[in-house]
Amino acid sequence: MAHPKLEHSTVISGLTASINGLENVQITDLYERYPDFNIDVQHEQEMLFGADIVVWLHPLYWYTGPPLLQQWIDLVLEYNWAYGHKGTYLKGKYLFNAISTGGSPEAYSATGHHGYPLKEFLLPYKQTAKLCNMKYLPPFQIAGTHNITREQLNHEINKFKALILHLRDSPNLSDLENLPFLNDFKQ
């Protein structure tokens, strides 16, 4: 999870709180763990190695993730560890983004304010997964966060928790590409 001002976030903090303490679910708050951006690469690689599914939970800032998430990707996903001829440690694992956006779903469309669908802004993450021989799942998005009601937010948080529980408890990971409740977002 990466949010530089988590104390001001009702969305990301709500999503995080909903899954905090679940068995076999680990949350790393990158900004809490690495406030100086000095990432313990070996520790992070060990955590990735033990995971089946990786979720990058973050707000979308200027069409990308927060800077510490990018620093984490740059350092942790090393050549010949995550990708390259010897980089097989993430092969077959699943990855997806769980994001919040201030803009509405309509704003992230070809005719919307941002001029492109959300999936185009997330292409670097999808390509990162591909380079690392991971399977990229459609993102979970909570949109329009500047105007979301408490009731709407609670509904989305419950959907996210249900998604995480389903992913955790799924006996057959090959079924994950067709999950119906990843906000019906198709790549």
Rank of each mutant, 00 (worst) to 15 (best):
N38H: 08
L22H: 11
T10P: 01
L122M: 10
E7F: 02
S13P: 04
L153V: 06
I53G: 03
L60C: 03
I157T: 06
V55G: 05
H85P: 12
Y79Q: 13
L179E: 15
K126Y: 02
M1K: 12
I19W: 02
K119G: 00
I164P: 06
K126Q: 14
S9P: 09
T145A: 07
P59S: 10
Y83C: 06
G14S: 09
F96P: 09
A2I: 10
A129Y: 03
A51M: 08
F160R: 04
G21D: 08
L60V: 15
P124E: 06
L163F: 09
T16K: 15
K130A: 10
N80E: 14
A17T: 12
E78M: 08
I164L: 06
L57F: 00
F37I: 00
N158S: 15
L57H: 08
P66D: 07
V41I: 15
S9W: 05
T88V: 13
A51P: 09
F185R: 11
G103E: 02
P139G: 10
H85Q: 14
L90I: 03
Y89V: 00
N154H: 12
Y89H: 15
L131V: 05
P138H: 03
P180R: 06
G144S: 05
P59M: 10
H114S: 01
G50E: 13
S18E: 11
L69V: 13
Y61M: 09
L15D: 07
L137W: 04
H85M: 05
K126C: 00
K159P: 00
I142D: 05
N183F: 01
I27Q: 08
W81N: 07
S109P: 08
P67C: 03
P139I: 03
N172L: 02
N80S: 07
D36A: 10
T149V: 05
Y94P: 08
W72G: 11
T111Q: 14
Q187Y: 11
I99N: 13
H166V: 00
T28N: 13
Y34P: 10
I148L: 14
Y31I: 04
M47W: 01
Q26F: 02
L15Q: 06
D52G: 12
V55T: 11
G102M: 02
A143T: 10
F185I: 14
W56F: 14
Y108S: 09
L165N: 10
Y34D: 10
P180F: 00
V54H: 08
Y125Q: 14
L137E: 14
I164Y: 03
S18Y: 02
T88H: 11
E32L: 10
H85T: 13
Q26Y: 06
Y125K: 03
R168C: 03
D74E: 15
E156T: 01
A143K: 05
N147Y: 09
L75F: 02
L57K: 04
N20R: 12
L15R: 04
P171R: 07
Q187L: 13
F140R: 05
R168W: 03
N158H: 10
L163P: 06
K186I: 14
L30F: 02
K186R: 14
L48C: 12
L30S: 07
S174M: 04
